[in-house]
Design a protein around this nucleic acid. Sequence first.
DNA 1: TCTGGGGTCCTAGGACCC
DNA 2: TCTGGGGTCCTAGGACCC
Length: 363
Amino acid sequence: MARRVVAHCDIDAFYASVELRKHPELRGRPLVVAGSGPRAVVTTASYEARRFGVDSAMPAARARALCPQAVFLPPDFEAYSATSREVWGIVRDRIARVQQVGIDEAYCDVTEVERPLALLRSVVAEVRESTGMVVSVGVGPSRLVAKTSSAAFKPNAFAVLSREQACEHFAGSPARILQGVGPKTAERLAGAGFRTVGDLQRADEAALAGLLGERGARWLWRAAHFHDDSEVATRRGPAKSRSNETTFNEDIADHAELERVLVKMARELCEGLAGRDRAGRTVRIKVRLDDWTTVTRARTLPERTNDADVVCAVAVDLLRAYAPPRPVRLLGVGMAAFEDPEPRPAPARAEVGDGQLALPVEP
DNA sequence: TCTGGGGTCCTAGGACCC
DNA sequence: TCTGGGGTCCTAGGACCC
């Protein structure tokens, strides 16, 4: 296979940067974007606020304690998606193969581009010029090298590494920097003495298999050596599931109240599905109790539906069957199994002939 | 450190059928 | 009647991502 050139582009401090675009007078001040209510978490923090230890997903109250002088702003999701469309629109205008992953990052396959680095630099400059967003770029022979590099060198990064250079450069970094190694896996690995990427590079695959299973070990060993042949997927299929969930400001113990909330969410979900002309067979509810135990219950129906009455009845039934034993912190409802379970089998007769007739005929 | 919301993928076990 | 294997579907939970 031809040597690939993949770039990972990541907008620095995206949400905070959009807010700064709206409020230029706040430039230079620590900025924290957080939801409202007692259980809000931080959506993002500017680099100035990060210096105080503020990070996304942190409870907003803790962020206030860490950095009382920060300006706290409520999220403005419309502005975020508008800016996101603007940025990736510019990138797509200049680069053919782009896979957006999330609101603020994308992979670009620039293998076929004659001078890929020059193109990337000029796109980054154009994005900055017309939107004010600063994009960090990592370039390598794979998505993994590109992603790891942009993350490691940001903000305002432009890092180009070969696979071998990535192996060497990140050998001393924590295993956690490999995408796919989350907190749980990192902890298990550390327990067995694998703390850094280099530890994993030197590891015996069999030893890793004892921790992660054969597939997991194979994947991790390859990742530690920055082997990755996953494609930049320019076309994304339709969503496989959709859901609504809410964390209450205060835990709710009253089952009747929970059912009212569940029905309301299920109706909204069905409206959204109907608007997209989608219907699913599996109805799922999610319940998080006050002690953080999380339970899901699902039922698969014989036919696909987005009928609110049907979905609400199933959701309520699932909730009643579970009967939360403690006050509830979070309630959610979702639909899945949108596609036909199997491709429509070709009817036995006649179809073949019909199909052939439909083929274009050479003149 | 008392932890949002929206997704994806993987695993494991049980039911059921051939 | 018992045993076994393989395949598929479904459920539940967990890990991870942004």
